[in-house]
Computed example of a mutant assay.
Amino acid sequence: QKGGVGKTTCTVNLAAGLAKVGQRVLMVDLDPQGNATMGSGVDKRKLALSVYDVLLESASVAEVRVQSPKLVDAGCSYDILGANRELAGAEVELVSMERRERRLKQALTAVMDDYDFVLIDCPPSLSMLTLNGLCCAHGVIVPMQCEYFALEGLADLVNTIKQVHANLNKDLAIIGLLRVMFDPRITLQHQVSEQLKARFAEKVFDTVIPRNVRLAEAPSYGVPGVVFDAASKGAQAYLSFAQEMVTRGQKF
């Protein structure tokens, strides 16, 4: 529910990292800004079909999913359910429809056997789109900056997840908290990190994603940081996170 914490960066780099270690991945972009789509090398302005068509049940996931040639060439390709500005209209249209919170879940059921992981990039608000994501997910990865306001936002998110779990999706849980944009030179960040580990224990991922300019540069080239500069500290951290996610996914 907080903007600017790296949800999209986390999604595209985890997708690329998982693909690189041999997992079959589908990435679903549920944000009308379409940043995850563009950051995966797909031009949102040229999409013939998008996740909007999936939610309105005018097309299936198999018909809508695409791959990025850039990622195929890099050897870490994953399927993409792209989004663009059309998706903002779905928000209004879904309100009056039946099964409005479960449309994505129903659509994904048909292709679940095709993938080891389905990653859903949600918008930074508790909207009908976010609810569709939470209703079909088995778990939530929470990217967190180690700052005071992030702790407050986390409390709100945990309450939201509890409500969705109680009313709409009994399978929903927190998979883990991912510390992102971490700067080891700042004392406060270490203090908040320790607070997180004390409060959430094994729910905190071992991997820490450092603040890294190469990760920030990658979207302007239309590729995840893992592909843009594989040797960078940020890319290496996301590859470690992908490995950790495979292990935790099996337990989860």
Score class of each variant (00 low, 15 high):
1 Q>V: 12
4 G>V: 09
9 T>V: 13
12 V>H: 08
14 L>Y: 08
16 A>Y: 06
18 L>V: 10
19 A>V: 05
19 A>G: 11
35 N>M: 04
47 L>W: 09
49 L>H: 07
52 Y>G: 01
54 V>S: 05
56 L>F: 05
62 A>W: 01
64 V>K: 09
65 R>D: 07
68 S>W: 04
69 P>S: 04
70 K>C: 00
72 V>I: 15
72 V>R: 13
73 D>K: 11
74 A>I: 10
75 G>Y: 09
76 C>N: 14
77 S>L: 05
83 A>K: 07
84 N>V: 14
86 E>N: 11
88 A>E: 08
88 A>V: 01
89 G>T: 14
92 V>T: 10
92 V>S: 02
100 R>P: 08
101 E>P: 07
103 R>T: 10
103 R>F: 12
105 K>S: 09
107 A>W: 06
109 T>K: 10
109 T>A: 15
111 V>C: 11
112 M>F: 10
112 M>L: 15
114 D>C: 11
115 Y>V: 04
119 L>F: 15
122 C>S: 13
123 P>V: 08
125 S>N: 12
126 L>H: 02
126 L>Y: 09
127 S>R: 04
130 T>E: 05
137 A>C: 05
137 A>T: 02
138 H>A: 08
145 Q>F: 08
146 C>T: 13
148 Y>I: 10
148 Y>D: 12
149 F>V: 06
150 A>G: 06
152 E>R: 15
155 A>Y: 07
161 I>A: 01
162 K>I: 00
163 Q>L: 12
163 Q>F: 14
168 L>K: 10
169 N>P: 01
170 K>S: 09
172 L>T: 03
174 I>C: 03
174 I>L: 08
175 I>T: 11
184 P>N: 15
184 P>V: 07
201 A>M: 11
206 D>Y: 06
207 T>W: 00
208 V>W: 00
210 P>H: 02
218 A>Q: 06
219 P>R: 01
222 G>P: 03
224 P>K: 00
227 V>D: 03
229 D>T: 05
232 S>A: 14
234 G>A: 09
234 G>N: 14
242 A>E: 03
247 T>P: 01
250 Q>M: 12
251 K>A: 12
252 F>C: 09
252 F>T: 09
